[in-house]
Design a protein around this nucleic acid. Structure first.
Length: 510
DNA sequence: ATTAGGG
DNA sequence: CCCTAAT
C-alpha cells in the first residue's frame, strides 16, 4: 500500500507536469503553473497521508513530513468535522447546551487553526498529524457518546475561562483540541472516511482534467454532492472542481447543481454550519495584520466569484482555464486564509506577499465591482451563548469600560473578538435587554418579540449590569426609578459590587 | 494605545 | 462589523 500510494503520487505529479505545460502554453503564467503543480500535488499527498494515518497510524509519518504543505488536507479534515457537527442535530431542549458545546468546540478548533497559522507550515504538519492521531484514537474508541467530553469542554470554556481558560497557553490549546477533535471525529467516523475518499476522487478527476473521463467527473459530482453538508462558502476547492467539471460537461454540471440543491434542501440546521464556517473563515481576523486582512478580503471576493462562476458556468460551457485558475487561487488562499491575525506571522508573511499578488491580478477585474459594494460586513461572527455569558461575566468582574482587560482575560483564546467587538456586543445586549433608554416612544417592545434567543438568566444579568454601568451615558431612566435601591439588592453580590466600584468611579464625575 | 460613539 | 474622534 505504501509503495502503491507513493507510485500513485508520482503519477499524479507527472500528470501535474503535463497539465502545467499545457497551462503555461495557454496562459503563460508562471505563478499559475506553479500553483497548478502545487495544487495537484497537494491533494495527492493529502490523500496518501490521510489514508496512511488513518489506516496505519504513524507508519506514514515520514511521508507526511515530506509533504510541503497539506494545510489543504487539514482544512478538509476540519471541514468534514464541521459538517459532521452540523449533521449532529439536536433536540430543542438541548439546543442551548449544544450551542454552548459547539461554541467551545469551535473555539478549540479555532485554536488549532491559530496554532497552525502562527507557527507556520512546519507546525501545520504537526497539527495535522496530531489531528489525525486523535482521529485514530477516536476510531478506536468507536462511537463515543462524547456528550461528556463535550460537556467538559463547554464548561471549561464558558465557566472557568477566567483562570484556567485564559492562563493555559499552547499546551492548553493542544489539550483542548485533543479533547475536541476526537469528539467530532467520533460522531462522524464514517463521514470522515467518506469525505476523504470523496476528496480523493474529486481531486483526481480534477487532476485528470487533461484526459477527463466522464466517469471520474460523474463520480466527482456524486461525491461532491455529499460535500454539500459543509457550507458552500467554505469550499472553494469544491467549487473549483465543480467548475472544472462543468467546463467539461455542462450536463454533469447541471446534475451537480441538482444534487447540491437537493442536498441543501434536505439538510436541516444551517445554523451550526454557518457558525462553523464562520469560525473557519474568520480565523484570520486581521486587525493587527493588515496584509492578512487584505488577503482575506481577496479570498472572500474570489470565493463569491467562484460561487457565481459555478452557477453560471453550469449553464454555459466555459473554458476550463478559468475555473481552474479560480480553483487554484482559492485553494492557495484558502490555505493562507487560515493564517491568524496575531502579530507575528513570519512564514505567513512570506505567503501573504506572494498570494495577494497572484490573486489580485486575478480577482481585481471581477472582484472590484463587488468589493466596492460592501467590503464592510466582511465577516459577521455569530456570538454564541457561551461567549455572551463570558462577556457578561467579564463585565461584571472587571467593569464595563475595561474591554481590553476582558478581552485579554476572557477572550484571550478567541483571536477574533476584539475589545471593540466586546463593547459592541455589550451595546447590543443592552439594547436587547431593554436596559437602553427608551427615550424614543414607539418602538421598544418590538425588540422583545423580534429576537429573543437570550436566556432569561443572562438577560437578567445584563439588565442588572446595565443599571450599574455607565455605558451609553447615564442611561438610568425608568430602571432607576422603578428600583432605585437596586444596587444593594444585587443578587450577584460580589461581582456586581466590584463592578459597581468601577462603574461608579466613572459615573461619578461625568 | 483605548474607548466612545456613529455608520 | 468597521471607522473616526477624543482621551
Amino acid at each position: 500500500m505504501d509503495k502503491e500510494a507513493h507510485l500513485h503520487k508520482k503519477v499524479a505529479n507527472m500528470k501535474c507536469q503535463r497539465a502545467k505545460k499545457d497551462e503555461t502554453s495557454i496562459s503563460a503564467l508562471e505563478d499559475e503553473a506553479i500553483a497548478v503543480e502545487h495544487l495537484l500535488a497537494e491533494p495527492k499527498n493529502e490523500h496518501v497521508s490521510v489514508d496512511g494515518v488513518l489506516s496505519f497510524g504513524e507508519e506514514n509519518l515520514g511521508k507526511c513530513l515530506q509533504i510541503e504543505d497539506f494545510s489543504c488536507g487539514f482544512d478538509y479534515g476540519l471541514t468534514s468535522n464541521s459538517g459532521g457537527l452540523d449533521s449532529n442535530t439536536t433536540q430543542e431542549g438541548e439546543e442551548e447546551l449544544q450551542l454552548d458545546v459547539l461554541d467551545g468546540l469551535l473555539d478549540e478548533v479555532e485554536e488549532v487553526d491559530d496554532l497552525e497559522a502562527t507557527n507556520g507550515l512546519s507546525n501545520a504538519c504537526e497539527d495535522f498529524l496530531l489531528d489525525m492521531e486523535f482521529a485514530e484514537k477516536a476510531f478506536k474508541l468507536d462511537y463515543g457518546p462524547s456528550e461528556g467530553s463535550y460537556l467538559g469542554n463547554s464548561s471549561s470554556e464558558s465557566q472557568s475561562s477566567g483562570l484556567s481558560g485564559s492562563s493555559n497557553g499552547a499546551v492548553g490549546i493542544s489539550e483542548s483540541s485533543a479533547a475536541t477533535i476526537p469528539g467530532s471525529e467520533c460522531k462522524n467516523d464514517a463521514l470522515d472516511k467518506t469525505v476523504t475518499c470523496q476528496l480523493h476522487g474529486g481531486l483526481r478527476s480534477k487532476c485528470g482534467c487533461q484526459t477527463p473521463a466522464e466517469d471520474s467527473i460523474h463520480t466527482a459530482s456524486l461525491e461532491l454532492g455529499k460535500f454539500d453538508d459543509l457550507d458552500n462558502d467554505e469550499n472553494p476547492l469544491i467549487y473549483g472542481i465543480l467548475s472544472t467539471g462543468s467546463g467539461k460537461r455542462s450536463l454533469e454540471a447541471s446534475r451537480i447543481g441538482a444534487l447540491l440543491r437537493e442536498k441543501r434542501s434536505r439538510k436541516p440546521t444551517r445554523r451550526y454550519i454557518e457558525e462553523v464556517s464562520d469560525k473557519k473563515s474568520k480565523s484570520l481576523k486581521g486587525r493587527e495584520n493588515y496584509s492578512a486582512a487584505a488577503k482575506r478580503d481577496t479570498i472572500m471576493k474570489v470565493r463569491s466569484r467562484n460561487e457565481h462562476n459555478m452557477r453560471r458556468e453550469a449553464l454555459t460551457v466555459v473554458p476550463e482555464e478559468k475555473p481552474l485558475r479560480e480553483t487554484i487561487q482559492s485553494l492557495s488562499q484558502f490555505r493562507v486564509r487560515r493564517g491568524r491575525p496575531k502579530k507575528q506571522a513570519p512564514i505567513l508573511g512570506l505567503e501573504s506577499d506572494k498570494e495577494p499578488l497572484s490573486s489580485e491580478s486575478e480577482d481585481d477585474r471581477v472582484t472590484k465591482k463587488r468589493s466596492k459594494k460592501h467590503d464592510r460586513r466582511k465577516h459577521q461572527r455569530m456570538w454564541t451563548p457561551s461567549e455572551v455569558i463570558k462577556l457578561v461575566d467579564g463585565i461584571s468582574e472587571y467593569g464595563v469600560g475595561r474591554w481590553t482587560d476582558i478581552k485579554r482575560l476572557l477572550f484571550s483564546t478567541s483571536a477574533y473578538r476584539t475589545p471593540i467587538d466586546l463593547r459592541d456586543k455589550w451595546r447590543n445586549l443592552l439594547r436587547a435587554s431593554g436596559a437602553e433608554k427608551p427615550s424614543k416612544k414607539g418602538v421598544e417592545q418590538k425588540q422583545e418579540h423580534t429576537l429573543r434567543p437570550l436566556p432569561n438568566s443572562l438577560l437578567r444579568r445584563v439588565r442588572e449590569l446595565a443599571k450599574i454601568h455607565p455605558y451609553p451615558r447615564v442611561r438610568i431612566s425608568k430602571k432607576s426609578q422603578v428600583a432605585p435601591a437596586i444596587l444593594p439588592s444585587a443578587s450577584k453580590g460580589g461581582a456586581l459590587s466590584s463592578l459597581g466600584g468601577r462603574s461608579v468611579r466613572r459615573k461619578n464625575f461625568t
